[in-house]
Design a protein around this nucleic acid. Structure first.
Length: 296
DNA sequence: AATGGTCAAGTCAGC
DNA sequence: GCTGACTTGACCATT
């Protein structure tokens, strides 16, 4: 079991998700931003290793505008060496990576232009992980998309698009239940028709479910991950007391997390903490897990 | 130097 | 039909 956090380390003093405005795009700006993101990612990863955190989500902004028309810079070639270097560090340190394209990436949109742009963005994600030389256990997690007033047809559209995707995307893509539209059971149905592993978001499941328990879901979902995919990834968070249902907590609720570990024991999984204070909660979670020999 | 409106992209609920 | 949430800060024009 690994524990990780997404994209940002708040105490290290640099960011690997720096970007800039489209209006100020220049090749120089692009180049220097990517270089700075590369250098910071390395620092974050080293900090993580020092603190026994071996699961990390790389921000989709790592290469800003990578899939945008404006970006004609051959970043794949220019940064191949640097990316390979990061990749060997990841492999030798046993760090697992995930990526999570954001809400604009929708494969089941009725609008072909949106689908085409989304696929371009997924190609960028796959390219990045490929250039790092990571095996296919490094995953790209995506929600199914919109309902468009007809969940069945929207699901069918997702599957049709998936069946025509580049294999470079397919081998890394996993689908995640969301808190409003497609729940874990919906994802499992899509798995049955496509074989796409399901990434279980425990918190989203508590927001939208068909009454299934967590253990029951973990048992089913664990089977959707084949050997080459690695052990299942799970997203964990808890409810922010003041926000709408689905709002992520500011800090980890350590008792709730402990309960989750106990409920999920002995399933082996890598847990991504989607909590606002990032590495701080990850430290607390790792500390807790280490204290109990059942979990490590 | 400080400020505050704005930022590539989509969907959907709520007004 | 428009705005805000999702996420989230930081960019950048204006003062």
């Amino acid at each position: 079991m690994r524990i990780g956090y997404p994209c940002i380390n708040r105490r290290i003093g640099c960011r690997s998700d720096r970007k800039f405005r489209l209006a100020s795009y220049t090749e120089e700006r692009f180049f220097s931003t990517v270089r700075s993101n590369l250098s910071c990612l390395r620092q974050i990863l080293e900090w993580n290793v020092m603190h026994d955190i071996r699961f990390f989500r790389i921000s989709s902004d790592f290469i800003p505008f990578a899939s945008h028309l404006i970006c004609s810079f051959p970043w794949q070639k220019r940064f191949a060496d640097e990316l390979a270097l990061i990749g060997s560090y990841l492999s030798e340190s046993g760090i697992r990576i995930s990526m999570h394209p954001d809400q604009f990436i929708i494969l089941n949109s009725p609008d072909q232009k949106i689908v085409a742009r989304s696929i371009d963005e997924l190609i960028y994600h796959a390219d990045l992980l490929d250039l790092m030389g990571l095996d296919v256990s490094a995953k790209i997690q995506l929600h199914i998309g919109g309902l468009y007033g007809d969940p069945q047809e929207s699901t069918a559209r997702f599957i049709r698009v998936y069946n025509h995707l580049d294999p470079a995307i397919c081998r890394r893509l996993v689908i995640e239940n969301d808190d409003q539209r497609f729940n874990a059971a919906d994802c499992l149905k899509i798995y049955e028709q496509t074989g796409i592993p399901v990434l279980f978001d425990v918190f989203h499941h508590s927001c939208k479910n068909n009454g299934e328990g967590i253990r029951e879901m973990l048992l089913k979902i664990g089977k959707t991950w084949k050997n080459k995919d690695g052990i299942m990834m799970v997203d964990y968070s808890s409810q922010h007391p003041d926000k709408r249902p689905g709002g992520h907590a500011e800090r980890i609720d350590i008792n709730d997390f402990k309960r989750f570990l106990e409920i999920s024991h002995p399933f082996d999984m890598d847990i991504m903490l989607e909590i606002k204070d990032k590495e701080a909660s990850a430290l607390a979670a790792v500390y807790l897990a280490k204290a109990d020999p059942r979990f490590l």
